[in-house]
């Protein structure tokens, strides 16, 4: 996997964990986790690739993107 693929996979994994808690709690939890554990460069690289990778993103990740910014 290259770094972009890895970032997408990592974000989706986070979403898969929080999904059990329901969307209302999961979306902010996903964003919070990424803000707390990913360094700023990883976050900006991830946000930069979101437009081209929407189809590969877990639906909850797509909803969390706005909160990560």
């Amino acid at each position: 996997m290259n770094t972009d693929e890895k970032l997408v996979m990592m974000a989706n994994q986070i979403a898969q964990f929080f999904a059990a808690q329901g969307e209302a709690r999961a979306v902010p939890a996903i964003a919070d986790h990424i803000r707390k554990f990913w360094d700023p460069q990883m976050r900006s690289e991830f946000l930069a690739l979101v437009p081209g990778a929407e189809a590969k993103l877990h639906p909850l990740v797509r909803k969390a993107v706005a909160l990560i910014r």
Binding site: T3, K6, K36, F37, W38, D39, P40, Q41, M42
Partner: peptide, 14 residues
């Protein structure tokens, strides 16, 4: 801000 974890350091190096 949080820093890089070991796997992230290696990805960033590559």
């Amino acid at each position: 801000e949080p820093g890089l974890r070991i796997p992230n350091m290696l990805d960033a190096a590559v």
